[in-house]
Design a protein around this nucleic acid. Structure first.
Lengths: 69, 69
DNA sequence: AACAATATCACATTATAATGTGATTATAGT
DNA sequence: ACTATAATCACATTATAATGTGATATTGTT
């Protein structure tokens, strides 16, 4: 999963939950800049940042055999 | 998914495919040190590193709603 | 046992993710 | 139109991931 798709996924989920970038950033304990860049598909986020955001969004990161649904 | 689980998953998959750390590191284009630490559950790997390794291992990273199988 | 390949680890360096600040633009609400 | 909040962006700083090197185990093979 590329950073562009992850950014889009996070943005979509955030909008579903009706929370703002500043709010999500605070809840997850990451900087607003980091979140902003990630949603834009920029940069190369760390596992820690992805996990923190996923947690707040009720999501999870998975590493699995390709093709598995 | 925590770095410990990811490390274990990668190590298990690598053994299934019967390739060594040096070989996987080279195929994926990451340093042997990075792979070694990751498999040990140390550090905080970047999305890029995880994607490169997943690709070689025939795996993929997914971000999805919690609980989805 | 000896040898070769693999894995582990410490340490220093380099590259860059993450952050902080401030400014600008967009959006929404009154 | 005005105001407040949110989002975008540039730039500098700090923290740390990724790498490189070399040394020491560990494991497997003959």
């Amino acid at each position: 999963m590329l950073v562009e798709q992850i950014g889009e996924t996070i943005r979509n989920r955030r909008k579903e939950l009706k929370i703002t970038q500043p709010h999500l950033a605070e809840l997850a304990g990451v900087s607003i800049n980091t979140l902003y860049k990630l949603e834009r598909g920029q940069g190369n986020p760390s596992l820690d940042v992805l996990n923190k955001l996923a947690e707040v969004l009720g999501m999870e990161l998975k590493l699995q055999i390709k093709g598995k649904l």
